[in-house]
């Protein structure tokens, strides 16, 4: 697996403001298409427009009750890879006693949640596959609170289309409500039966087996239910927003 490749690419990317700009300029497409590629913005706008179209296609394809495959304990990838846009040593160290999950937006009960509050809710264990946008995949076992149960408990507006997710490491992502309510989407508190280790997102990770890995954020500190697509770290660099499986 090429996690070092991922890190390198990610770090190269971080300095860039215009993610897709120059996307095509390096290629030889100009020879074939005959279109004016001096206007890179136009090409990027076109690719972004298609990506928004693909969001809609994926939302239409997404079946709310169709489950991602589950696996046996013997299938679990060991060691399960660490993956982020930084080296593992830079992963945030969070004190579980002082950590809070902040809630905002279209939610009735916005009081912050403690880790012990989440641990007191019903827990579900699932062995599912994490599929990275790079192409590799790994199987892990996560336990935690079904997201639907949590959203109902806090009185979230389930008709709002998006949930913005913010993390202690500066990462962020977005989640469409249909996927948030999917039976396998969970707030994971444990990995392979033990408290979620720092490298996998302590204290909580949003685990979504029907999304690519980058839409499974770790070290989550805040959720906001919103009517506006909030984007996210990689989404804003140009990864497809829906990125469903």
């Amino acid at each position: 697996m090429s996690h070092s490749t991922f890190h390198r690419i990610a770090q190269q990317r971080l300095g860039r403001r215009n993610l897709l700009v120059k996307t095509l300029s390096r290629g030889s497409l100009a020879l074939l298409s005959g279109c004016n590629l001096e206007d890179d913005d136009g090409v990027d706008k076109f690719l972004f427009a298609i990506s928004r179209f693909n969001d809609r296609v994926q939302a239409a394809l997404f079946a709310k009750d169709r489950l991602a495959p589950t696996f046996a304990a013997a299938d679990i990838t060991d060691p399960f890879p660490f993956n982020a846009y930084y080296e593992e040593a830079k992963a945030p160290e969070i004190d579980g006693a002082t950590w809070r999950l902040e809630l905002a937006g279209r939610i009735e009960k916005k009081d912050p949640w403690l880790l012990t509050d989440l641990e007191a809710l019903p827990q579900v264990t699932q062995i599912t596959r994490h599929v990275c946008i790079e192409g590799w995949s790994a199987i892990g076992e996560w336990s935690g609170v079904p997201m639907r149960l949590f959203l109902e408990r806090i009185g979230a507006d389930l008709r709002a289309p998006f949930i913005a997710i913010r993390c202690a490491d500066g990462y962020s992502s977005s989640l469409d409500m249909a996927t948030a309510l999917h039976p396998q989407t969970q707030i994971a508190l444990r990995f392979r039966g033990s408290t979620l280790p720092r490298r996998y997102g302590f204290p909580i990770k949003i685990r979504i087996p029907t999304k690519l890995g980058f839409k499974n954020p770790k070290y989550v500190t805040a959720l906001e239910v919103t009517n506006i697509d909030p984007g996210g770290f990689w989404e804003n660099y140009g990864y497809n927003r829906f990125s469903g499986l």
């Binding site: 697996m1 490749t5 190269q12 996307t23 095509l24 390096r26 690719l47 192409g135 140009g238 497809n240």
Partner: peptide
């Protein structure tokens, strides 16, 4: 981005400049 054979393609022969561009 994640080769499963013992080689990668020369970057100059590829399109997209980075993974996100290539996927787009």
């Amino acid at each position: 981005a994640s080769p499963f054979l013992p080689f990668t393609f020369p970057a100059k022969l590829t399109l997209g400049d980075w993974l996100g561009g290539a996927l787009a």
